[in-house]
Design a protein around this nucleic acid. Structure first.
Length: 453
RNA sequence: CGGGGCGUGGCGCAGUCUGGUUAGCGCGUACGGCUGGGGGCCGUGAGGUCGGAGGUUCGAAUCCUCUCGCCCCGACCA
């Protein structure tokens, strides 16, 4: 993408409505524009990041065997009346009437709808297990939206729903999701800690929030210091190996971590001096809720004995749009955003410092094509952001640091031959090297290597 | 929903208390020039009717009433 043609309205100053750093940076980088309280339009740069995150979530879900569907944003109130939540949900649910005066609602979640879909088609234990997900916009009419996309009214969420014959199956489904979540966040360059979470009226231990630590986090969290050393990458395990999945889950959940509403200082198994206290941002939530919806909505199957039993269900959410802000909270400096490579809107920034000088310009134009040929891959294709604007170097550096592209290749007329400056955004290292060496250094980076392979 | 605050060119702000000439400033932007490796400088422009409606007054960004929007703190949430 050529910057001279790109719609990327960056700002030097933060609009005053922004309070926290991720919100400020998203506005300054031209990623989003607020159109109404808690509702945002995604501009090209922000949209690309959103789509990257969505794609990582999708790939990790598919790897577990979950199947993607798409349910509508608008739902009829009928199903919600059936489950009893139409009355319970309160003003958070946006209620709408259509031209026939029928009650509709903008979905805040999809348990009812998915349960309806599944009960229509699934009647035998032979049809189980199933795990269906979608990535769709939700609306919750929060009293007070804040923190930009981290707490919007409209938000993009991945939610899936597992259906099993019995508790054992449901537990296995839950554990697979637990593992998938760890892998998902790892790919985004995050360390997200699974923490015991409130299960509400359902009870039981089967609910975890996935939380990343950040000073601006909304909730207080308590975690055993052992977590500092724990490998959260969940590498090398197969979802098909039930025992491995269970062992891993048991291992991870044996280490204490809890959000404040679940944390009881009196009965905490970890000594105070071994306990970290921090603030965290919830980026995912999984829970098992058994027959809460299947029983009242009569989503049943016949088991091997011919008995009619309600489905055992669980649901699993990831706040996709929230993650855009959360990642920035976890990864930025005074100059701007530092994108982890796999979620970066572009992988490499090529900065042409002297577009009006013919030798430099020709070098950069040629290099731009070469970079595109090597690094552009489906489904995003365009991985190179090429700044050939007639602007001062300082402005270009500032813009590129602000939007946080992982690699910068700078070329100016002062540099002889094929010498360029390679800058790594996260460490701020700069190397004066030949373009060949620069590309080797980029290729050696594990993430890009994987993509280019 | 309770408490607090703010709406003045695209962004950040001053002016409002103590009504009074063409409503200012910085950034951005258009054009010209000087520059040229971390948001440079000079000059010339464009762009707002002061969130909206009503009222008071000879006169309202400024005072009054109503209204809309946005932000912050609290209670709630992916």
């Amino acid at each position: 993408m050529r910057m001279s043609e790109y719609f990327m309205p960056t700002l030097k100053e933060s609009p005053k409505e922004a309070e926290i750093v991720s919100h400020k940076l998203m506005l300054r980088a031209g990623m989003v524009k607020q159109t109404s309280s808690g509702i945002y339009a995604w501009q090209p740069l922000g949209f690309r990041v959103l789509k990257r995150i969505e794609q990582i979530v999708r790939e990790e879900q598919n790897a577990t065997g979950a199947q993607e569907i798409l349910m509508p944003t608008l739902q009829s109130s009928d199903l919600w009346k059936e489950s009893g939540r139409y009355e319970d949900y309160g003003k958070e649910m946006l209620r709408i009437k259509d031209r026939h005066e029928r009650d509709l609602l903008y979905g805040p979640t999809n348990e009812e709808m998915i349960t309806d879909i599944v009960r229509t088609h699934v009647h035998s234990y032979k049809d189980l297990p199933k795990n269906l997900y979608h990535i769709q916009w939700k609306f919750r009419d929060e009293v007070r939206p804040r923190f930009g996309v981290m707490r919007g009214r409209e938000f993009l969420m991945k939610d899936n729903y597992s259906f099993d014959l019995d508790y054992e199956g449901a537990l296995y489904s839950y554990q697979k999701m637990f593992l998938a979540y760890l892998r998902t966040y790892t790919r985004m360059g995050l360390r997200a800690f699974p923490m015991r979470a409130d299960t509400g009226p359902i009870g039981g231990d089967l609910s975890h929030e996935f939380i990343i630590l950040a000073d601006t986090g909304e909730s207080e969290v308590f975690a055993d210091k052992k977590w500092n050393e724990v490998d959260l990458t969940a590498a090398g395990l197969s979802y098909d190996n039930k025992k491995d999945v269970n062992d891993y889950y048991e291992k991870m959940t044996s280490i204490y971590a809890a959000t404040d509403e679940k944390h009881d200082p009196e009965n905490c198994p970890v000594a105070t001096d071994q306990l970290n206290r921090a603030r965290g941002i919830e980026v995912g939530h999984i829970f098992y809720f058994g027959t809460k919806y299947s029983a009242p909505m009569k989503a049943t199957v016949q088991n091997k004995d011919g008995e009619v039993v309600p489905l055992e269900m669980g649901s699993y959410g990831i706040g996709v749009s929230r993650l855009v802000g959360a990642i920035i909270e976890a990864s930025h400096d005074d100059s701007g955003i530092i994108w982890p490579e796999d979620v970066a809107p572009y992988k490499i920034a090529l900065i042409n410092l002297d577009p009006e000088e013919s030798v430099c310009n020709e070098f950069c134009e040629k290099l731009y094509k070469q970079l595109q040929d090597e690094f552009n891959k489906a489904p995003f294709f365009d991985e190179i952001l090429y700044d050939e604007r007639k602007a001062r170097p300082g402005a270009k550096f500032a813009d590129m640091d602000l939007i946080g592209i992982p690699w910068q290749i700078r070329k100016g007329s002062r540099q002889d031959g094929d010498t360029v400056t390679l800058k790594k955004r996260d460490s701020d290292e700069k190397h004066e090297v030949s373009i060949g060496q620069a590309l080797d250094m980029i290729r050696e980076s594990s993430q890009l290597n994987k993509k280019a392979a």
